[in-house]
Design a protein around this nucleic acid. Sequence first.
DNA 1: CCCAATTTGTTCGTATGTATA
DNA 2: TTATACATACGAACAAATTGG
Lengths: 243, 243
Amino acid sequence: MASMTSMDGPVYREIARSITQRLELGAWKPGEAIPSETRLKEEFGVAIGTVRKAVDELVAQGILLRQQGRGTFVATHNRERQLFRYFHIERQDGYKEYPEVKLTGFERIRLGREAADKLALHEGDRAVRLRNTLSLEGRAMMIEDITLPEALFPRMTEKKLRERPNTLYKLYQDDYRISVVRTAQRLSAGVAPRDVARLLDLPAGLPVLVIRRVAYAYHDKPVEFRVSYVDTRAHDYVGDTHR
Amino acid sequence: MASMTSMDGPVYREIARSITQRLELGAWKPGEAIPSETRLKEEFGVAIGTVRKAVDELVAQGILLRQQGRGTFVATHNRERQLFRYFHIERQDGYKEYPEVKLTGFERIRLGREAADKLALHEGDRAVRLRNTLSLEGRAMMIEDITLPEALFPRMTEKKLRERPNTLYKLYQDDYRISVVRTAQRLSAGVAPRDVARLLDLPAGLPVLVIRRVAYAYHDKPVEFRVSYVDTRAHDYVGDTHR
DNA sequence: CCCAATTTGTTCGTATGTATA
DNA sequence: TTATACATACGAACAAATTGG
């Protein structure tokens, strides 16, 4: 049997934990298949139903993905997932579209109090601050100010960000072995800072939707803090509850 | 075997559908137990594992609730659920509290275009419009304008609303056999209408968070449309993504 | 306090179906 | 066609929680 940190609880949960750990250590990369259920059942020395129940949990959490006849795969952060799994922007008439994302800011900073708090780090720790401008139909309608701690994202460069072919979360996965599994967000209405208002072409004083989001990797480790400003004159921030 | 609309697909899904239908017809009321798995297995003439898989689905959807040693129960809309399952308001420092809800408006109206659209009904259909004022620590910080179509909520009265001991959703369940299972919401930032601003004690022009929410019952039937205005000077609208 | 019955939870093992390469 | 992988369904045994006597 493969070594498991033998905590309490049912076997299938131990197996789920074990798989998550190996995932975290990079045993299988995003997009790759994990061993088949028959293999896992032998590795862990349990019945196949027990393996299935473990995998079920990780699938429900969005960490793994099954495909009948092919295998079980490590989830990737492609655009589809971005659009459907998490909250997203939609035109008020319901029309959906991928926003065009442009990097419009990059600097090295020290963590402020809020960011340090959300990232479970310390004030003054080194970090990278980047700004994305998201456009729909050629009009900027969302600004994202993203804070990435140096400790987790060493040697992050503007070039790397500019040349990424996919989503940001995919870059985290591919280059830093960091998989965002969950996000938590707090929403409020506010007035955009002057520079943001200018980028959004907003008349002074017009309200924007402010989103403060923390992204978490495996084991609820916070990895990214993001403040977004949305021009909601023509677009809404859309989300479902209960799945 | 109990009669099932014999569509295609796996047996366990048929069973899940069948249970949902009987739930919808009021076979078991919210809070009550449904038949035990052994009973269901006999009723449907399948293995117990198949019943369990069906129930698993409904549990995942938040429709049923299992309790080891006791039984499987129809989910109710108590305050706990309200606070944790759906989006909710939280003080910016993270402090959670049940808001005090007060009915501050009641009138009979005709559906406007937006409400009719969201409720899959027709403009001009009869409805009830009610207004809730939510307060935290004695200060009003959220106004909810709720539209309930007459067709689904016949003979709704102000008295009934004022005297409800529980949440609104619980009233829907108990008095109208309507169980809200899912909600979809669109968020934006805006300026509160004059009357709302007055209720929230908001200086003119200050932004509020505007939430347009549609609540759905079984089979994705829309039953309630709600527009909420949140004073986010000291509170946030909080939600999780993943699962 | 303990016992017995009931109910869900976990685990085992097997057989067969369906999708993919 | 064949082999592989996940999906469905069956059945059984025991564990754990709850309830009522």
